[in-house]
């Protein structure tokens, strides 16, 4: 019976996310919209902690760890958000976005570890024998997108507070594309790899994704940073949605995809407000002739 209450919590949360986002997009209701979404999030979190049951009907344990982490995170979050200067708001958003990306990536890494260990126990020769392709896709997409978002957001944060300079070198765009292709290839190799090596390939995938995230943001100029942060924001949304697939959790899926879609549109709108195209922002700083981006 308790499980049904959790389902209702998630439905309520999903509705508050939609309504909250809607209210945030109009000046008169924006502040209330933020509170509505926050209330929904609170319900979803509390509901998950106390009512969640896994497939075998077992409740969660490790409560001490969970509460300790929640309290540490909440204290740091409130202090950081309250202390930040008004002018430094966008970099703060970027920082928090990076945290969300890292969170999504870590979830996927742990989930990979479970699948990997299960396959090891069953003595599978190839990693792919132990996992459904769709499940692996959700794991690997979550870890790649989350890592890119984390690394990119951290660079954006560092650039806005002045600790990173724009770095531009020759053929940067080509190198970035190659690295991105490398991430995809490694992700595919992991799936088909001999099980004993699958974890190494997976770790390499994540590391290369982190490198890609850094290189992706490095050349972009400071004035364009809000656009990039918005883009990374929508990436994290998608990464969160991958987590929703992993746990069959509709609140995560709704929130993640909603932000992914709204964030992408918002990115385009921000570009338009600056009279530029997204491609222009992403490759503009080094004036390349390439049109992909």
């Amino acid at each position: 019976m308790k499980f049904d209450i959790l389902t209702i919590c998630y439905i309520v949360a999903a509705v508050t996310f939609i309504v909250g986002l809607k209210m945030l997009s109009s000046p008169a209701t924006a502040r209330r919209g933020n509170l509505v979404a926050a209330a929904g999030m609170f319900i979803a979190i509390v509901g998950t902690i106390f009512l969640y049951k896994d497939e075998d009907g077992l409740p969660l344990h490790n409560y001490a760890w969970i509460f300790a982490a929640l309290i540490i995170g909440a204290i740091i979050g409130v202090v950081a958000a309250k202390k930040v200067k008004m002018t430094a708001m966008p970099e703060m958003v970027s920082f928090f976005n990076g945290m969300g990306g890292a969170c999504a990536a870590l979830i996927s890494v742990i989930e990979f570890d479970y699948v990997f260990r299960a396959a090891e126990k069953m003595n599978y020769v190839h990693f792919s024998e132990g996992v459904v392709p769709g499940h692996y896709l959700a794991i690997v997409a979550g870890s790649i997108i989350g890592s890119v978002s984390f690394a990119g957001s951290m660079v954006a944060w560092g650039k806005l507070n002045g600790s990173f300079k724009d770095v531009i070198f020759k053929a940067q765009h080509t190198i970035n594309l190659l690295i991105f292709a490398g991430v995809i290839v490694l992700a595919i190799i992991t799936f088909f790899a001999v099980n004993a090596y699958a974890d190494y390939f997976f770790i390499a995938t994540v590391i290369l994704a982190l490198i890609y995230g850094v290189l992706f943001v490095l050349p972009i100029g400071g004035a364009d940073m809000p656009v990039v942060i918005s883009l990374l924001n929508s990436f994290t949304g998608v990464a969160a949605a991958c987590g929703g697939f992993l746990y069959n959790n509709k609140a995560m899926l709704t929130g993640g995809i909603l932000v992914g879609a709204a964030g992408t549109l918002l990115t385009i709108l921000m570009c338009k407000a600056m009279n530029r195209s997204l491609t222009n922002v992403l490759i503009g700083s080094f004036g390349g002739n390439e049109t992909s981006g």
Binding site: A13, F17, G20, L21, L24, S25, A30, G33, N34, A37, A38, M41, A44, I45, T48, I49, Y52, P59, L60, H61, N62, Y63, W65, I66, A69, M89, V93, F96, G100, C103, A104, L106, I107, I110, E111, P226, I229, S230, N233, S234, T236, G237, A239, A240, G243, G244, L246, Y247, N249, A251, M252, G255, G256, L258, V259, G260, A262, G263, L266, M270
Partner: peptide, 21 residues
């Protein structure tokens, strides 16, 4: 709006709690 959307995708914490638990 970007900041609000950023907070909403923080719903990923549900997954983290489940993993932890």
């Amino acid at each position: 709006l970007m900041s609000g959307a950023n907070a909403i995708h923080g719903v990923v914490i549900i997954g983290a709690i489940i993993v932890m638990g």
